[in-house]
Amino acid sequence: MSLKLIGTKAIVIGASSGIGAELAKQLAEGGALVATIARRTDRLQLLSDRYPERVFPFAHDVNNIAEVPDLFQKCTDTLTGLDLIIYCSGVMPQVGPHEYSTDKDIDMVNVNMSGAVAWLNCAATRMEGTGHGSIIGIGSVAGDRGRSGNPVYAASKAFMHTYMEALRNRLARKGVKVVTIKPGPVQTEMTAALGISNAMPVEKAAQLILHYKDRTGEHYLSPVHRIIFYIIKRIPSPIFRRLNLK
């Protein structure tokens, strides 16, 4: 157990796989109370069986925005408070270089953006009143530029960056920590099909995210990314489109 996490009351949305699952696991191992939220509760069960007194699974599809306020309050009741909320739900379907699939794109809009707004608005309302807590949103290096590979995924993450920045500008003065994480490729189900060789192990990513949990601001998970994307963000658009970066 880590002293920093003992007693922390956390909600993790999208806790059945990938970064969310690993975050929930590390929080629980560290002594935090965690409400884990996902569609697939069978996947949440494993962790709550191991830490029945600290992990509380809730079934929820983030497409179902109407039920968020009720569920949010159920979670804070169960946790007897809230110190940390992490929105990890995200989808990145494979999109061909000439494919414009509205079905796939709207799915990303719903899960990556609308769900985040529904959950984090609840958290923001609460934390503006209580004046403490951390809100973590998972963005992506993909959101830093409109690369050609997956337009709506990139746009949804750029939305996340701007939304989180705006929340930060509202809430930081109230004592609330608002943290944007911009991971590069992480070894998860989402990236498995991409065949990326140098993806960051998910354990490492989750550790770093928890390390940044009280540090208001935007954080890349590796210093290399910080430098590369500092440059990439500044490439003028006419040049950028000739580079054909995916």
Partner: peptide, 11 residues
């Protein structure tokens, strides 16, 4: 039934 979130405060 819910209580309004904006009534929350920390004391």
């Amino acid at each position: 039934m819910n209580l309004p979130l904006d009534r929350l405060t920390n004391v």
